[in-house]
């Protein structure tokens, strides 16, 4: 039975106690790795994990920063939003007829005028694009790990994601 330890997938257990790998599934492609190769593979996988984690963190931090700036500007530009006790209800901003940018041209105009809500929408779009970027990094990392089956899998996911944005008419 193929055991993961022999292939260096487990990073915290020593490879010495693992039974020999037979390359059960992809026979011919898999052979038992030497300890040096296993250590190299392990290091590569760790690098990939850290790269994906970093992409997600950067996306999250940038989008929160942009959203906060936008929200701050919304309140700075509209004095009636601010008081805790006031005559201005939030429902004027959350009804179906509330105007806010939802096309790229409208977003561009709102950003050019320095409108807070435009900047918030930009931050939300950065947040939406973070998982797409994460899949793109996944493709690159499986190429780096020299793993053709998983490269094809992630390429397919990336293609469907990008396709979905075009289908939406973005």
């Amino acid at each position: 039975m193929t055991d993961m330890h022999a292939e260096g997938r487990s990073s915290r257990q020593p490879p010495s106690d693992a039974p020999p790998s037979e390359g059960l599934a992809r026979s011919g492609q898999r052979r038992q790795l030497t300890p040096e190769e296993a250590a190299q593979m392990e290091e590569k996988i760790r690098k990939v994990e850290l790269a994906i984690s970093l992409v997600l963190r950067i996306g999250v931090v940038v989008s929160v920063a942009v959203i906060s700036v936008g929200l701050g500007l919304m309140f700075a530009h509209h004095g009636s939003y601010v008081p805790i006790r006031g005559h201005f209800s939030y429902r004027k901003l959350t009804s179906r007829s509330t105007p806010f940018p939802h096309t790229f041209s409208a977003l561009g105009r709102a950003l050019a005028r320095g409108e807070g809500r435009g900047i918030v929408v930009l931050g939300v779009l950065i947040l939406i694009l973070t998982p797409v970027l994460r899949v793109a990094v996944g493709v690159l990392s499986f190429i780096y790990e020299k793993d053709p089956p998983m490269t094809i899998v992630t390429l397919y996911v990336l293609a469907v994601l990008i396709g979905s944005f075009f289908l939406a008419g973005v």
Binding site: S63, V64, L71, T94, F100, R117, I128, A168, G169, V170
Partner: peptide, 23 residues
């Protein structure tokens, strides 16, 4: 994310709701 594009174009992402939710 695969369906977020549709929601954005349909005007379902209202900044004053999305901002506090996201943060």
């Amino acid at each position: 994310a695969a369906s977020a594009g549709v929601y954005f174009i349909r005007g379902q992402i209202d900044p004053i709701i999305a901002a506090p939710v996201a943060a």
